[in-house]
């Protein structure tokens, strides 16, 4: 049964991707990409990767699609006919594809429990992490503790994206006079619905943030969901009102603070005589220490991701407004 679902999903995935090549309407291409992401998320669930599916759905299908649509609003939705030949790209792609297929020839069999990856490093995560770290969700344990340095790096990547977008687009200063009317002022239904939904979304984000130790979820997903709440607010009530609620400068500071919070946990454990990011040293009982450490760094991650995603959306949004004025 599971295999059948997998096959159907994979087939749909392939069709979606192929369709993207031929469509010239970029709006449709972006929508197909959203679908593609969502289908991938479904496959991930089928393959037991619930955390990944959660992230893919919120980041891939959610934020990326929103940003792409924002870009399309500024650049136009039609792709023009390409003039250069497509033989060379096709050749490169075929060679790469052939290499990949050649590579799969000696691949360990799918799902077999005696594959090298299930025998070497992972058993410790599966068997020991509930004892060593005390969390039922092994993905969170590995992410935050065993490979905590990766996650710090990843938070910095997100921060670097903020720097990139700010350097390119910047965020328009708040000048009350020339802010045009944006958002859907006239749609009362939208207002009421949004007012009702936004607190719920934020509540859900908080749940995801703090429940990540036990079920799927964690800082990344929570940050993205919280940002989505504010994005909805911005779309409905306009940028200027959103700026009044959470200012862009404040968000930049927040993004920095998230990274620093994460790093400071590492420094504190150094101060306590452990290695960098050794949470066991944070409290007298190592398991309690691990728990503290993971909660704080997940919070740092959540803050940074929230602030960065919202800032990026602000930057895109103010560009759209600027082009409307001109």
């Amino acid at each position: 049964m599971g295999d059948l679902i997998d096959l159907v999903l994979l087939a749909m995935l392939a069709i979606t991707a192929l369709q993207m090549i031929f469509l010239k309407d970029l709006f449709a291409v972006v929508m197909l990409f959203g679908i593609y992401s969502f289908l991938s998320a479904l496959i991930f669930i089928n393959l037991d990767a619930v955390d990944v599916a959660f992230t893919e759905a919120s980041v891939g299908a959610g934020i990326s699609t929103v940003l792409m649509l924002g870009t399309l609003a500024l650049t136009g939705r039609k792709e023009k006919k390409s003039s250069h030949s497509s033989i060379l790209p096709l050749l490169v792609v075929c060679i790469t594809g052939a290499a990949l297929i050649y590579g799969t020839l000696d691949m360990p069999p799918f799902g077999h429990p005696n594959n090298p990856i299930h025998e070497h490093v992972a058993p410790r995560y599966i068997e020991e992490s509930p004892k060593e770290i005390g969390l039922p969700n092994m993905v969170t344990s590995v992410l935050a503790s065993y490979r905590g340095f990766d996650t710090l790096g990843e938070t910095v990547v997100v921060f670097a994206a903020l720097i990139g977008v700010l350097a390119l687009l910047g965020v328009r200063r708040q000048e009350e006079n020339d802010v045009p009317e944006s958002g859907f002022k006239a749609h009362h239904v939208l207002h009421v619905v949004a007012r009702f939904f936004i607190p719920l979304i934020i509540l859900f984000a908080l749940y995801v943030q703090f429940h990540g130790d036990f079920g799927p979820g964690g800082g990344f997903q929570a940050g993205v969901i919280a940002a989505a709440a504010f994005i909805l607010y911005t779309l409905v009530f306009g940028l200027s009102r959103a700026f009044a609620v959470v200012g862009p400068k404040f968000l930049q500071a927040l993004a920095s603070i998230g990274v620093l919070l994460y790093a400071s946990v590492g420094f504190f454990s150094m101060y306590k005589g452990g290695q960098f990011l050794d949470y066991s040293k944070l409290a007298t009982d190592p398991i309690v220490g691990q728990h503290y450490g993971i909660i704080i760094i997940e919070l740092g991650v959540g803050i940074t991701v929230f602030a960065v995603m919202l800032s990026i959306f602000y930057a895109f949004g103010s560009q759209a407004e600027r082009s409307n004025i001109q």
Partner: peptide
């Protein structure tokens, strides 16, 4: 196996960062 999941969580976030830039 939880390890590939962790790696891909990281990779997804890296991907969205690149996309936004």
């Amino acid at each position: 196996n939880p390890l590939p999941h962790v790696l891909i969580l990281t990779a997804i976030v890296v991907g969205v960062a690149t996309t936004s830039v």
